[in-house]
């Protein structure tokens, strides 16, 4: 496709965002199902969940929360910057989102490694000895934060592609719906974390 800053005859930005929102709804339902599973198991094994949740590091969870919230704000601002035709600023803000997104994953790596070192991973002997409630808690912990981390990776790739398009002027101040959609996806990832953090790290 050629650069089409002004070729807007076949464009439907609202339709494009509508498609993104429909996809986001399926994601919300997917995670809602997991949150319900977590809630029911917590209700039925509250003592084990209480003990298991104490194992998680609130500091690293809080750090990752701050990282995600800030990265969400910068990707939102990058749209404003692009609308004002400030391309470099827009790219810098997106670059910040990409950078701290990677920091989030690095933190997750260290967090999980520490759990593995303590023998806490799905199917481990330590976990089986601890009992059924702990198996459920850590099973859900690894599955839900893992699925969330997968979404972070997809979001980073999406924003990376958009970043590249902005450089090449395929996304411009009057044609930026793809940047908006990448932003919407990143904010969804943010919202999921907003619930994961208190449910796994804070409520003990």
């Amino acid at each position: 496709m050629a650069q089409q800053a002004h070729a807007d005859e076949h464009r439907d930005d609202i339709g494009s965002r509508f498609g993104m929102w429909l996809f986001i709804f399926t994601e919300l339902l997917l995670f809602a199902g997991l949150f319900i599973t977590y809630s029911v198991f917590r209700y039925k094994n509250w003592q084990a969940f209480h003990l298991a949740a104490e194992e998680l590091d609130v500091f690293i969870g809080a750090l990752n929360t701050v990282i995600l919230l800030a990265s969400s704000a910068t990707i939102a601002m990058s749209i404003t910057a692009l609308q004002q035709k400030r391309k470099i600023l827009s790219l810098s803000l997106m670059g910040f989102t990409l950078m701290v997104g990677i920091v989030f994953l690095v933190n997750k790596y260290f967090e999980w490694s520490l759990k593995f070192e303590h023998g806490l991973y799905p199917g481990s002997e330590t976990l089986v000895e601890l009992g059924k409630g702990e198996v459920l808690f850590f099973g859900l912990y690894f599955f839900m934060t893992g699925l969330h981390a997968l979404h972070i990776i997809i979001g980073l790739v999406f924003i990376g592609v958009v970043f590249n398009y902005v450089i090449k002027d395929k996304i411009t101040h009057d044609n930026f719906v793809l940047l908006e959609n990448a932003g919407l996806y990143w904010h969804l990832v943010d919202i999921i974390w907003i619930f994961l953090f208190p449910l796994f790290y804070l409520i003990t």
């Binding site: 807007d8 464009r11 439907d12 930005d13 609202i14 609130v58 809080a62 929360t65 701050v66 919230l69 800030a70 969400s72 704000a73 939102a76 601002m77 749209i79 404003t80 609308q83 004002q84 953090f197 208190p198 804070l202």
Partner: peptide
């Protein structure tokens, strides 16, 4: 509908929202 939303949201709005989000986070911790 492509031309009907040239709405530019100021940086300040996003900064204030970010501050509120961080405040809620620390309150919940």
């Amino acid at each position: 509908h492509n031309d009907e939303k040239p709405h530019i949201i100021p940086y300040k709005t996003f900064l204030l929202v970010l501050l509120a989000l961080l405040a809620f986070t620390f309150i919940s911790i």
